[in-house]
Every structure is written in structure tokens, then in C-alpha cells.
Simulated assay, not measured.
Amino acid sequence: MTRLDVRDIPPVKRHPTIHEEFEDLAPGETLTIVNDHEPKPLFYEFQAEVESFDADNYEVERVGSEEFVAKFPKVEA
């Protein structure tokens, strides 16, 4: 599992960084993202653009007022 805390990354660079990390995953692995808001726009972006994104097994949990943990799984080969 790869964990990426994007809260300290400038907003304009967050999505490209997340996409790069996701691409580096092996099939069946999961990218866990820690964010300061629920990443719904990112989920929809992945659902529409990333074939290897397993949208059915996506999970998000609100941990605190400014901490959301989202799991972006990559489909198994």
C-alpha cells in the first residue's frame, strides 16, 4: 500500500502528483491519499479517465475536520 499525504502539496500540483503515484502501482495495489477535503472531484476524474481505477472498491473516511483518507485501488491483472 502506498500512502500519500497531499495536504502540503500546492493544490494545482495535487492531481498530477496523485496520478503519477497511482500509475506507479502494481495491479491489485491501493493508493491511500490523505487530503484536507473529501476528494470527490478526484474520484470522478479517476472514474472517467483512468481505466485501471477500481471505482467499485473506492473508500473514503473522514478522520477529522480537515483530514480525509481515501483509498484508490488499482484493478488486478
Rank of each mutant, 00 (worst) to 15 (best):
E67D: 06
K40W: 14
E51C: 02
P10N: 10
L31Y: 12
L31T: 09
E51M: 05
L42E: 01
S65K: 13
D36C: 03
N35E: 06
L4R: 09
F46Q: 01
R14D: 00
R14L: 00
F68S: 02
V75S: 08
H19C: 06
R3C: 12
V69W: 04
R62Y: 09
H37A: 12
V69F: 01
D24I: 04
F43I: 01
Q47H: 12
E51F: 06
P10E: 05
I18W: 00
P11V: 10
V12W: 01
V50L: 07
H37C: 05
F22A: 03
A70Y: 00
E45Q: 12
E51S: 11
K74W: 12
F72P: 05
D54W: 08
H19S: 02
D5T: 10
R14Y: 00
V75I: 11
D8N: 14
F43A: 02
P73R: 11
T17Q: 03
F53Q: 07
P11N: 07
R7D: 12
Y58G: 05
P10A: 11
D24L: 12
E20M: 08
A77V: 11
P27D: 14
D24K: 14
A55Y: 15
E66A: 15
V63N: 02
I18Y: 00
K40T: 14
V63E: 06
P16G: 04
V12A: 07
P27H: 10
A26N: 14
A70S: 14
E61P: 02
S52V: 06
F43V: 02
E67K: 11
T17C: 01
D5A: 13
Y58W: 15
D36T: 05
E59W: 07
Y58V: 04
G64E: 15
S52Q: 14
A26G: 11
D36H: 08
P10R: 04
F68H: 12
P41D: 08
V69H: 04
H19G: 02
V6C: 08
I33W: 03
P11E: 07
E21H: 14
F72D: 09
D36F: 06
